[in-house]
Write a protein that binds this DNA or RNA. Structure first.
Lengths: 124, 124
DNA sequence: TAGTTGTATAACTAAATAGTTATATAACGT
DNA sequence: ACGTTATATAACTATTTAGTTATACAACTA
């Protein structure tokens, strides 16, 4: 979890671009060729090829061969890794939040038990 | 889920840097000042301040004031949003995978029922 | 008030990124 | 073999990024 850094660098960087996230979203529905992936975008074909290379290097997609075509498929493992990293630290945060929260509760309860008598003592 | 793009651009870009992920990891344990966050890194203080600004703009952290200090705290919502995006498309992929998988199974079953008779017919 | 501590900003540089057009490669159909 | 289709690569440009040092600002302490 902690030392998967170089891997996650590429994954998060790849996902930071809206065009690439749209490609990932499209590929979640199934394989597609470069032409098919390029079609929705107002962008040159080489630009799409470059985005696909970024996704491939990040391990988010893989490509096979079908005649002249290079169908792309989503590789969900890296999505899972990125999600795992996020969830891990959300979880750590939540545990610490709860810990502090109960600590504050206990301090309040201590106050009720101890500060009232203290005031009484002062009054006396 | 689909149109939260500009938001996710900044979040994923912020998380693409290992220094910033380390800062997020540290803040999951609780608040910390800029000095405390900078200490583990072989990097100038202004560099850390810039990383913190990137994280703040992405909505991943927030900062308060304590005398000269600017304690940083993690804001887990954006982590949750990013994780949600990933999980959503993993889920879409998985559903489509299963759908294709059962489709293939059905096709195989059809083959058993229909192609064997066809072969018999040919032989005859 | 003067010095100190904690943090931010300015100005700069080197490297990386996202796009372009033009061209090359690869496999098909005729 | 020849033109066509699908994709990749090269060369270039503009923008962004991650770092630097020097400096400014803000709030404390003596």
């Amino acid at each position: 979890m902690l030392i998967t850094s170089p891997h996650l660098d590429a994954a998060f960087a790849a996902l930071a671009d809206p065009t690439r996230r749209a490609i990932v979203a499209r590929l979640a529905l199934g394989e597609a060729t470069v032409m098919e992936l390029a079609q929705p975008f107002d962008m040159s074909q080489p630009a799409i090829s470059k985005h696909l290379k970024v996704l491939e290097i990040a391990g988010l997609i893989s490509r096979s061969r079908d005649a002249q075509r290079r169908p792309c498929r989503l590789e969900p493992q890296v999505l899972a890794d990125a999600s795992g990293w996020l969830d891990h630290y959300r979880d750590v945060w939540e545990r610490n939040f709860r810990r502090l929260d109960t600590l504050l509760d206990e301090m309040k309860r201590q106050e009720k038990k101890s500060s009232v008598p203290r005031r009484r003592a002062k009054k006396k």
